[in-house]
Design a binder for these strands. Structure first.
Length: 257
DNA sequence: AACCACTGCAACCGCGACATC
DNA sequence: CGATGTCGCGGTTGCAGTGGT
């Protein structure tokens, strides 16, 4: 059985909102609030609109604290960073940007930021590293030094990866200001370390010919949440697609610690 | 001036999640 | 516990504005 429509589409107005409709909706909501029911609201307010349409209009346009356009460089960075970490969860991303709506952020990403990111990637990969003739099979290998929370811990996780892809992702990472520009001669230093995580040092080392590499990191001594968060950080930011292959290695190791 | 392609953004649609009955 | 109603989200569409030819 299909879902019943939220309103009678034949009897509701659609398309752009007029200033009069905006005023009616704004006045009603300022006086009465939503009453916890958007579906019933248009009838109460005297609008020939679908409740969903009213909700959207209020949330995306009429709310008093909304900002439109003029995204700052800082907002760009936040959007890029979060997009690379969590993907297209626009409501979550928008929640980190006061005055921005999910729709605004989504539109901004689709029309401008995505192209900006891609253009930047094209520029930064104009002299790509040499490609292995045959893409190596992905493998994970634990080179960890084992669990001893009383000492400074150093952990390496070996991986094999398509070096072209890895380079692109590291460059992207760098563009976001989260990593020093890699020269790809051998390694890239993650700098500064992820906020709130006490990683003492970290780097990515890659052989651009073979595609073999290691993620190396050490903490100040406590491997609990810090290491997990760092795993999340890598898994989310640096290797959104590829790192999933390595992530299980992290977690299986951490679980055994 | 007319046409076309492109861009940006408001609005719509469909669906999953959640609440309530 | 299943059926129903509503909310909220992400993907997509439609259209006005703009610039190029």
């Amino acid at each position: 059985m299909g879902r019943a429509p939220c309103c009678d589409k034949a009897n509701v107005k659609r398309g752009p909102w007029s200033p009069d409709e905006d005023a009616v909706l704004r006045n009603y909501l300022q006086k009465h609030g939503t009453g916890g029911n958007w579906i019933a609201l248009p009838q109460k307010a005297g609008l020939k609109r679908c409740g969903k349409s009213c909700r959207l209009r209020w949330l995306n346009y009429l709310r008093p604290d909304i900002k439109h356009g003029g995204f700052t460089e800082e907002e760009d960075n936040i959007i890029c960073t979060l997009y690379n970490k969590i993907g297209s969860r626009w409501s979550v991303i928008a929640s980190q940007l006061p005055g921005r709506t999910d729709n605004d952020v989504k539109n901004y990403w689709n029309t401008k930021l995505k192209k900006k990111m891609m253009a930047s990637n094209v520029t930064s990969t104009s002299t790509p590293p040499s490609q292995p003739s045959v893409l190596p099979a992905i493998k994970t290998e634990d080179h960890g030094s084992g669990a001893d929370s009383s000492k400074s811990l150093g952990t390496d996780y070996g991986f094999t990866y398509d070096s072209q892809k890895l380079y692109t992702e590291i460059t992207q990472f760098s563009m976001m200001g989260l990593m020093e520009q890699p020269d790809f001669s051998g390694s890239a230093i993650i700098s500064p370390p992820p906020e709130d995580i006490s990683i003492a040092s970290s780097s990515i080392t890659v052989d651009s010919n073979s595609g073999n590499g290691y993620i190396n990191w050490s903490t100040d001594g406590v491997v609990g949440d810090d290491a997990l968060l760092f795993g999340d950080f890598f898994g989310g930011y640096g290797f959104q697609e590829g790192m999933g292959v390595v992530s299980p290695c992290y977690y299986s190791n951490l679980n055994s610690m």
